[in-house]
Design a protein around this nucleic acid. Structure first.
Lengths: 345, 345
DNA sequence: TGATTTTGCGAAATCGTTTTTACAATTATA
DNA sequence: TATAATTGTAAAAACGATTTCGCAAAATCA
């Protein structure tokens, strides 16, 4: 029962092409003011809105981009999405959203779905341990532009917008060093996605600058169980670990219970720095216990989430308008620091 | 450069109608096995996928629904969306998402956008202080089914799925009464959206059952500044308030700073119950301070968020398949309780 | 007044599907 | 062997828009 352009034409007593011309009100068309008025009146009275679907078919573009993120339960990706939405709005476009749940297979399903919907382009934060490189190759072949945000596949050439992870991790580690810590553990893994590789590299750089060799037995990561075990090993080490670098909220959250169990409060007993916030619900028993072991707001590297979203969208739109450039852009935005002196030491 | 059905037809040496028939492989059609094989081969080799856009135009339905929620910064709506997505997946449909930021105008923009995209239906958690009733009337007139989740416009007839707010608030208030509290403040407002009206009503019911009249001077709500002022009044009251009912995380979050400033720890110094969790970032100075004033996990009413999403979608899909029923369904799901004895006293 | 330009509008093609209808060619029936 | 029924395929219409092109009517010019 939806009204179409022909209903408007009928009511205005004109042809559909005339209606279209009035509505697009481009310069080249010649429509008399009297007719235009009739058309506009009919449009108003019928409350007519052109079908985007028909437009899409005609123009061969959907003015829609697909977003796939691993999760929404922290504000991190929510803010990135907000940035994306904002720019898309400004350009009269829309967004469809998929949540991969850190699962490579689900990610693929979302991407295929989006492609079937003929999205113009994609913005993706790939799941950890990603195995979709061939899928992204297909996108390149098909000429569908996409931009990775926050994370990128290792050794993979593509558009990317994220934080300057190496720099952030470097500064954060220096913060620990400045407090006199020398044996500093790294919890975060070193592969799967580039962000972690880069953070490890920043950690390493800061240590080596001080002539400290990275101790492999102080590096841990993986799934929560592995992290838990790694932390148990670290706290048993003698002499005791003097600082901890947590590569993200994910690792921090997984590591805290083991620390608490060992009676270690942070940052009082163990200086600690992290990337981005970790969130606690104070209705949750476990979370409540955990917060008790935290003695002061944690120093943290703050990622420019909103800006990452905006920048990624701008790159995508640029690619779109230029019909897919062959040049890939890799952009690392400068992080901010909370309770870390970035120029410290 | 995307390949269409006619490319397949050309490659298979047949007509596009034959290709379509092979692909839809419905029973009624008669296509020889030899032709079908040729077509399938061509489809495989060209990696052809039918254009959803063209299908949409043909079928006059998009297999898409629009979701509009006020915010995504708490897990509440995220979980509802997860429930919606799940059911939509199972039915091979997609979702487009808008965030209204608690702004009636933005909500309207999102809804209009969704309509222009010709979504089949809508699931909406309306913004507080909503002024879009006429817009929703238009939806009814246009025969576009929609379901409210969590919140509903006051005195407005429409599909609705949410928590049994009155019951939840009733039980929560009884919990405070069971602890001996008699003068209990209510922070949450009483209008704008039905959830709050119902929660106030449950609070009132529990009090009146004990022969306690609601004291209007102990009721506060509104924007964060008003809440802050209300709390300051409450804590100054003598004899001192003995319990606090917080209508949602929003009010809890807004109220805590004033409580802390007054040196009141919760629930130790002031028994408190709330609806759903409040989240804190322990990298945030303010949040950190706030958590120090909380002496134990807070008792809370837990809303069945995931189920709300599922149920709402089921109702919408039912409406959709029946071509829009005239009967509106109002469903209130039973909440769960954390640290509240629901049968208490 | 007759020829030419301008103006206003509509018919038709197009985008990629699905589905109905029509039409051959083949097979079965009388 | 005609005729009827069946089978395989293609042509065409429809969905709702945009845009090119052509054709009248009106306006301008000679």
């Amino acid at each position: 029962m939806r009204i179409s352009i022909s209903d408007v034409a009928a009511k205005a007593g004109t042809s559909i092409s005339t209606v279209s011309k009035v509505l697009s009100n481009a310069q080249g068309y010649r429509v008399s003011e009297a007719t235009a008025r009739r058309v506009r009146k009919a449009v108003r009275e019928l409350n007519y809105r052109p079908s985007i679907t028909a437009r899409q078919l005609r123009f061969q573009r959907t003015d829609t981009i697909g977003i796939v993120v691993p999760l929404l339960t922290t504000p991190f990706y929510v803010d990135i999405i907000r940035g994306i939405q904002e720019v898309m709005w400004e350009n009269g476009r829309t967004v469809i959203l998929g949540i991969s749940d850190e699962d490579s297979v689900l990610e693929q399903r979302h991407l295929t779905m989006a492609l079937q919907r003929r999205v113009d382009g994609l913005i993706v934060a790939p799941a950890r341990n990603n195995e979709n490189a061939n899928l992204y190759d297909e996108l390149k072949d098909a000429g569908i532009p996409f931009v990775f945000v926050d994370r990128c596949l290792p050794d993979y050439e593509a558009n990317y917008v994220g934080t300057d992870n190496r720099e952030g991790a470097y500064r954060a580690t220096r913060h620990l060093l400045a407090q006199g810590a020398r044996s500093i553990c790294y919890i975060g893994g070193r592969g799967g996605i580039t962000a972690l590789v880069e953070r490890f590299s920043g950690y390493q750089k800061a240590l080596e600058e001080k002539g400290i060799e990275v101790d492999p037995s102080l590096v841990g990561g993986g799934i929560p169980e592995e992290i838990d075990q790694a932390v148990r090993r670290f706290v048993a080490v003698r002499p005791r670990v003097e600082g901890a670098f947590m590569a993200s909220y994910f690792y921090l959250q997984a590591a805290l219970p083991a620390l608490i169990e060992a009676g270690i409060r942070v940052p009082a007993d163990l200086p600690m720095v992290g990337f981005d916030s970790v969130f606690f619900s104070l209705s949750d028993e476990t979370d409540y216990e955990t917060t008790r072991a935290i003695t002061a707001p944690l120093p943290t590297v703050i990622q420019p989430r909103y800006e990452i979203g905006r920048k990624a969208t701008e790159i995508l739109l640029a690619d779109l308008s230029q019909g897919g450039t062959e040049m890939f852009r890799q952009i690392r935005l400068t992080p901010q620091y909370e309770r870390i002196d970035p120029d410290g030491q």
